[in-house]
Design a protein around this nucleic acid. Structure first.
Length: 485
RNA sequence: GCGGAGUUUGUCUAGCCUGGUAAGAUGUCAGCUUCCCAAGCUGAAGGUCGCGGGUUCAAAUCCCGCACUCCGCACCA
């Protein structure tokens, strides 16, 4: 099933839809999660916590979305996050100044240079618009951060463009009070904000989006001394360094030098194990090693975890080795001490980052799970049971003869133990189809035999098979089946 | 931001060329029927025709502007 099919399901079944849609001045790049979407998202994050945070013994925090100017001066976002852009006065096309100048004249000017340098280069080399040969206006900075004014004086502050800056600025306190030891992972789930020029494709490029970020602080001289590596030694990952991606175990990847050390390989390994459990088709994923031009300004080594969808390869997670870039810059600007003791050694920790796009991950789970079952004329969202927005539908075969009341009674008992959905109205087949579309793995039906012997039928979403079980066994059977792996 | 194509009820589509006050399917709800996979019957609700302006006696329809969605380019820290 493709993007259009997922979009239709999202709109019809309440996974997600455009923000402020009843108003004409609604802005692009903002979407809301509906009841089914939020239920899926919550379960996805629970899995993330189990497979990464708790598994590795990380700390989780929840930081502010608005952060002070100093944070982004230190992080480099105020300087580097801005792109120098030039606009043609004739056709209004916009280009990156540094790239356009380099393409036409071969002159390389760093993107962080003074704006006047770009203007001079354009003037001296007679650079014109590549499209229409028009004249360029003066170079301007386009910063992708949203500026906000705080208090009556409207003091300058910004909506964070990535969640991780909280983790860096909180690091000294957290390390002390949580009795930190390297390596230490600190994680955060939350919203980030970027003023994209052209948001598009619903959840795939948003101006306000969810990230789940993990920053692992480590001693840079001990990157191959990680005991936990044995847990992932045999986990197969797919890595792309050149044109083709190759599958190999984490151990092989380190031995061959494709992954620089055991420390990075360990985290790529547990990330892969996590994504396997989301139901994403892991054979359609790869870790792509980024070249120098593609990497973020703070990254020394970077792997993007990408997944193949019907609209192409999609970046789900950025794995960046940020070295001591962030901590040293915050230390310099704030005068706070960021170095810590690792046994007897005083070190300024390095950081390896696993920065996950939640919205894109949820889209991919939906796309990879959505099946068109032509044989039975139905659409099935074959989600893992532990991720399904609804775990079980409780249905009465017909409304009369006390079957409705019996179904009500069962629903009442089970609804606090799992996500149950009660439905009495319409043909039974129609109700099964509706549950199939939101991915409910089970449907329990109360029929006339129920009144005689206290049994119900339980229908499996994927096979459509039905079994008769005792009501007494229902709770434990369902709770067992929807448990996280 | 540039170029192209679109926008009619929850969803899909007709109507637009040739202006006369919105139609169908599906879905939803209620009732009847029905002992298990979108059946049938009866009834109901649901539309600022993306937004704003113009032309006209009259605009979903013609004209202008804008927004949003999708595709391509550029961008994606």
């Amino acid at each position: 099933m493709d993007y259009e099919d997922v979009m239709k399901l999202a709109l019809e079944r309440g996974f997600y839809f455009p923000s402020c849609e009843i108003y004409a001045d609604a802005q692009a790049g903002f979407w809301e999660y509906g009841p089914s979407g939020i239920s899926l998202k919550n379960k996805f994050l629970e899995l993330w916590r189990r497979e990464l945070i708790r598994r590795d013994g990380m700390l989780e925090i929840d930081g502010s979305q608005i952060m002070s100017k100093s944070v982004f001066e230190a992080s480099g976002h105020l300087g580097n996050f801005a792109d120098p852009i030039i606009k043609c006065t004739k056709c209004n096309s916009t280009f990156r100044a540094d790239r356009t100048i380099a393409e036409i004249s071969g002159i390389e000017i760093p993107e962080s240079a003074d704006l006047i340098e770009f203007d001079n280069a354009i003037l001296q080399n007679n650079i014109k618009c590549p499209k229409c040969k028009g004249i360029f206006d003066n170079t301007k900075n386009f910063n992708m951060m949203f500026k906000v004014g705080i208090g009556p004086e409207e003091a300058e502050a910004y909506l964070r463009p990535e969640t991780c800056q909280s983790i860096f600025v909180d690091f000294p306190r957290l390390f002390k009070i949580m009795r930190g030891k390297l390596p230490l992972g600190i994680a955060q789930v939350g919203k980030s904000f970027r003023n994209e020029i052209a948001p598009r494709q619903s959840l795939l490029r948003l101006r306000e989006f969810y990230q789940a970020e993990i920053e692992v602080f480590c001693n840079p001289s001990k990157l191959d001394e990680i005991e936990k590596f044995s847990e992932v030694r045999d986990v197969v990952i797919r890595v792309q360094t050149d044109a083709e991606s190759v599958s190999m175990t984490c151990e092989k990847a380190v031995e061959s030098g494709i992954i620089p050390n055991k420390f990075v390989a360990y985290y790529l390994g547990i990330l892969t194990e996590f994504y396997e459990k989301t139901g994403i088709d892991i054979t359609k994923t790869r870790f792509r090693k980024l070249g120098d031009k593609e990497k973020a300004f703070y990254a020394k080594v970077a792997f993007d975890f990408e997944v193949e969808t019907t609209i192409g390869w999609l970046e789900l997670v950025a794995c960046n080795y940020r070295s001591d870039y962030d901590l040293s810059n915050h230390a310099k600007k704030s005068k706070e001490k960021f170095d810590v003791m690792d046994n007897d050694e005083k070190v300024l920790p390095h950081v390896f980052e696993i920065s996950m796009g939640i919205d894109r991950s949820l889209y991919t789970i939906l796309e990879h799970s959505l099946k068109d079952d032509k044989e039975h004329d139905r659409i099935v969202l074959a989600l893992k049971p532990y991720l399904s927005p609804v775990h079980v539908g409780i249905l009465s075969l017909v409304k009369k003869d006390g079957l409705k009341e019996k179904a009500d009674e069962i629903y009442l008992k089970i609804k606090r133990k799992c996500d149950a959905f009660l439905d009495h109205s319409g043909a039974i087949g129609r109700r099964y189809r509706r549950l199939d579309e939101i991915g409910s793995p089970f449907a329990v039906t109360v029929d006339h035999q129920t009144l005689e012997d206290e049994t119900v039928t339980i229908r499996m979403r994927d096979s459509m098979e039905q079994k008769r079980i005792r009501i007494l066994e229902l709770d434990s059977m369902i709770i067992q089946s929807i448990a996280f792996p």
